[in-house]
């Protein structure tokens, strides 16, 4: 087990390195003067010099890269070109709203989607199944921001049950936080629920065709026991996998959802940085989110061994 753990962690390093190289080259290999691209058309020569200085653009590429990676490893993600603050501080300021929304979304999605998928597979071909599949294809197809505005119109404007937009920290005002977090979380969860429910259904249907399910029936077990004891755990691995890969959708969704609901999280930070052409911040955000994605999938990989005794490392 420890050796496997080590091997998995080591395997994540080249992935992160690829991300780093890509992010690094993106700015440097863009046609034209990177400093001019960042500064925009109205920049003065002094501004350009300052940007070049700040990003070390005057040195050879390799030197820049090594220095950049060296700084990253020491936790230095660079300095914002706009506010002159260390990027890491900006991220720390904005990270909590995003983390809260993500946690709520994730638990909400799993809690809703897995039972939905199980029910659909169990009652395959029935109206329940059709309902779940219809919901799932809608969840895939309606863009997050459309769902967001629909929910706002329905629950905040027409019914006036919930505030329209904004954010409150849970430590300051928990009721206010909860009231404002419900809609963003639901919005964000829609696609995730669709994805997980669909995969749960498909995976369970596969498992229900296995020989050992037939054996379980031949033993005279009840359908309920066949489903919950014999089928569900075997169906879990593909579902875990899709929760992991779907995490990328969650990250992309956050950017949009925070814009729709005016939440001062990392998503808004991203959008603001893009308009300000604050490349160090964009760069750091891509690195960070990729890092989180890799970590989440690493944890999910490791969880397989808990679900399936054949996977022992």
């Amino acid at each position: 087990m420890p050796i496997y753990l080590l091997r998995r962690v080591l395997a994540a390093i080249p992935v992160m390195l690829v991300v780093a190289v890509f992010v690094f080259l993106l700015l440097r290999l863009t046609p034209g003067d990177p400093a001019a691209i960042l500064a925009g058309d109205m920049a003065t020569p002094e501004q350009l010099d300052r940007i070049r200085e700040s990003l070390g653009l005057n040195d050879p590429l390799l030197v820049q890269f090594v220095r950049w990676i060296g700084a990253l490893l020491q936790g230095d993600f660079g300095t914002s070109l706009i506010s002159n603050k260390p990027v890491i501080d900006l991220v720390a300021d904005r990270m909590w709203p995003t983390i809260w929304i993500a946690i709520i979304t994730l638990s909400l999605s799993v809690a809703i989607a897995v039972p939905m998928g199980v029910l659909a597979a169990w009652k395959q071909g029935s109206w329940v199944d059709h309902l779940v599949m219809t919901f799932s294809v809608l969840g895939f197809s309606i863009p997050v921001f459309v769902i967001g505005y629909l929910l706002i119109k329905l629950f905040a404007i027409d019914l006036k049950w919930l505030p329209v937009q904004g954010y409150k920290a849970p430590s300051d005002d928990f009721a206010g936080f909860a009231a404002r977090a419900v809609l963003p979380a639901l919005t964000l969860a829609s696609i995730y629920i669709a994805l997980i429910a669909r995969m749960t259904r498909a995976s369970l249907l596969d498992v229900l065709n296995e020989d050992y399910v037939r054996t379980a029936r031949a033993k005279g077990l009840t359908e309920r026991r066949v489903l919950f004891r014999h089928a569900l755990r075997n169906a879990a691995v593909p579902v875990m996998t899709v929760i992991g890969t779907g995490f990328a959708l969650l990250i992309s969704g956050v950017v949009v959802t925070e814009s729709v609901y005016n939440i001062p999280g990392l998503g808004r930070l991203t959008v603001d940085s893009i308009f300000a052409r604050d490349y160090p911040v964009i760069q750091a955000l891509i690195l960070l989110t990729s890092g989180v994605y890799v970590m989440v999938n690493l944890l999910i990989d490791l969880s397989y061994s808990l679900l399936d005794p054949r996977i022992r490392y």
């Binding site: 992935v15 991300v19 890969t245 990328a248 990250i251 992309s252 949009v256 990729s290």
Partner: peptide, 8 residues
Amino acid sequence: GLMAMPSV
């Protein structure tokens, strides 16, 4: 590496 970067 490409997969790890959020597409949006």
